[in-house]
Amino acid sequence: MVTVSILTMFGLGLVCAGILAAASKIFYVQENPKVAAALELLPGANCGGCGFAGCEGYAKAVVTDPNVPANRCVACPKESIVALGELTGKTVAEAEPLVSMRRCDVNNGHVVQRYVYHGIPSCAAASVIRGGTNTCAWSCLGFGDCVQACPFGAMKIVDDIACVDIQRCTGCGLCTKACPRGILELIPLRSRVCIPCNSRDKGKAVMDACKAGCIKCGKCVRTCPAKAISLVDGRIEINQKQCLEYGPECGQACVGACARKILRPIALVNAPVKENAASASDAGDNENKEAANA
């Protein structure tokens, strides 16, 4: 019985192995070994920041399509991108590292809550009920849709407001898509100044709702020597490319000109907000000092 069993299994194994060996020859599919090598270089986070369906999609595209540049991955380190360029024979243009920035300062602005929300804890759900809980309809709701969306753990909710961990943020832009109010925006990591207000309301309405909101006085627009700041569709936009090209000679004139002291460097916007700040400008000063001390 033992001999028969062993012989049977041996025979069965042999038959299966033979069939599989034959099948692997008959059904052999030519696969580009470069795709596997490219996939090896990518982080495997499948964040979609490159615009393709996951890392595998991009690996395939970068190897097969000559028009797809090798620097599309925002999440992998620079060495990997250089290696990817060498692998695919493409020249790698230096990609500007981007970072997510929150265009809202609702805590410093002491925005009043109009009602208490007890529904599904999601910004998308809360924002549809009478324009959200805050008096400002452009403000961060703090339920953390962006935290859920971030594959790199770079977003967190501190004091009911979304904060970006610049060290971890890769600039993939998933949070900007997740935010129902478009508060999060991708800007170059080198950016010298940013505006943490997203409101398109008129100056008076902003002043009533928020102590840290942009009232569109236009001082920064007039002050900027590089003409990088403009009022677009009712809110201030900074053309970071123009600003960076001009260089630091202006001494950040816009920061000095800002009537409400809200224009400031990105590091100060993303830092966790102190809760008991006396007023918006004080809070801004405190943060400045903290940053200086650090």
Partner: peptide, 28 residues
């Protein structure tokens, strides 16, 4: 061949081999 007692192990080999084969077949 009266080998009923080998059922479990034979089925394992057959299913594993079959899935591998089907995978190759479908790929092509």
């Amino acid at each position: 061949f009266d080998l009923g007692y080998l059922q479990t192990i034979v089925f394992i080999v057959v299913i594993a081999g079959l899935v591998q084969f089907v995978e190759m077949f479908l790929k092509k």
